[in-house]
Simulated scan of single mutants.
Amino acid sequence: MTAVDLPAVPRVLIAEADPWSRDLLKQVLLNVRCDARLDVCADGQHAATLLGEKTYDLILADWELPGVDGLSLLRSVRQKRRSLPFILLSSRNDSASVREALPLAPTAYLTRPLNMESLTQRLQDLLLNEGESVYCEIPPLAPGMTLPAFLERRREVCDGAPLRVDVKTAVQRSLGPEGLDLKQLEDQVHSDPQITAVLIAAANSAGYHGTPVQTLSEALHKLVPGQSMNLILGLALKHNVVLGDPGLVAYAERHWQLSQDSADYARRLARMLELDHQRCYSACILHRLGDLALLRCLEDWRQGGGALDDEAIGESLDAFGAAYGSALRTRWRLPLELRQLIAGIYSLEGGVYSREALVVNLAAQMARLTEHEGLEELAGSKTARLLKVGLSELTRVRKT
């Protein structure tokens, strides 16, 4: 495809089995051509069906697709359209695999972890004329749309929370002479609920096996370093990851701080009691993810022309915040053990509680105290008694 025959609006097929890699490819492509008509699938048979039904201007396919693999798709495409741009993605970087693919003339053969800059440049060359850029206006709200109806519709498809951390700066600070320093990267992003949730979810996706990953540290060590870096950088490409409305920013700051304070208290309490402090930290840093995701959707509402004030923000959080969090944790398939621990922050039901659940519940209660409220009442609570911590221990945790 050359500049003279570029379609007005290109149709692109993305075939990738891993859901998080699939989402990353989608975001990189839409960052180049926000108007592209996208079909996205997770297996080769579905891709083959789509290729038989529609005419595409570009295909991105993973060699390791289940069912019909990406190389077979490329072979089928070349039998009909020799010049159709086809980017083949693969974890195979050995010379034998390259020699097997080259006779089928892929437009590009990209190995994992992907080089984001190289992929972006390839897509720009294929989808844009020289010097061209594409601007996509934000669609207005449907006539008669109410805020509750809008939020109800978005609950099952929301894309998570806004970013707290500047991801480009975080990655740059974590790159050293020998590549990505995972410990440095963890130090840079551990306060961001969205990054934490996405990396944990990706590490537990279909392409990875073994013990469920429940912490950021475990996720970073299970994912290939380049994949972690790409996923983090890919988050910055998404819509409204930085809030623009001052009122929404103020609410987000409060929820971020509440998450951070809870997580810090939980880590200190867990260490004091010789419990799993990383799991406790992880649960607390994630427990306001739904509220933050809701704020990001309210930014979409505002940009679509909807009215928004402090009262509407507060009422929306009360009505939908918990439901957004539950929907996200389920849809992203965060481990059940981690979801149960997060649930313990909000309530302790039944007669048997894990000590970690008691820790995160107590830590969240501490975080909600104002600077003028003392710890005496909290020290006498059922949660503190079950953990056998008193006023002196809580005071130490608060001051550390």
Rank of each mutant, 00 (worst) to 15 (best):
V98P: 03
F86I: 02
L127C: 05
Q194Y: 04
C136Q: 15
P177Q: 13
P140E: 11
V189D: 00
S91C: 09
E100C: 12
T146Y: 03
R153W: 07
P113C: 08
Y135D: 13
L141Y: 04
T196E: 05
L147S: 04
A149L: 13
D192N: 09
D94P: 09
N93M: 09
D192M: 02
L175F: 12
D166K: 04
T196R: 00
P148F: 06
R92P: 11
S91T: 12
C158V: 02
I195L: 07
Q172Y: 07
G176N: 14
L182Y: 04
L128F: 04
L151N: 00
Q184Y: 02
G179H: 10
R153S: 13
V167Y: 02
A142M: 10
G131S: 12
L84W: 06
E100L: 14
R164C: 06
S191A: 15
D125P: 06
L147F: 05
F86M: 05
D187Q: 14
L141V: 10
Y135N: 11
P148K: 07
V167F: 04
S91N: 13
P193L: 03
G160L: 00
R153P: 00
A149D: 13
D181M: 06
L175T: 14
L89P: 05
S191L: 12
Q194K: 11
I138W: 13
C136G: 09
N115S: 09
T146F: 10
I87E: 02
D94K: 07
Q124K: 14
I138M: 12
L180I: 15
L151W: 01
L104P: 01
S133V: 14
L127H: 06
D166T: 04
K168N: 15
L89R: 00
L151D: 02
G144Y: 04
L185A: 04
L175H: 13
S97D: 15
E137P: 07
A105Y: 14
L114P: 02
R122Q: 14
R99C: 10
L185D: 02
A108F: 06
V165E: 01
L102F: 10
N115T: 08
L123C: 07
G160R: 02
P143C: 10
M145N: 04
D94C: 07
P103S: 12
E117W: 08
T120L: 02
D166S: 11
R155I: 05
S191Y: 03
A197P: 00
L114G: 01
P113D: 09
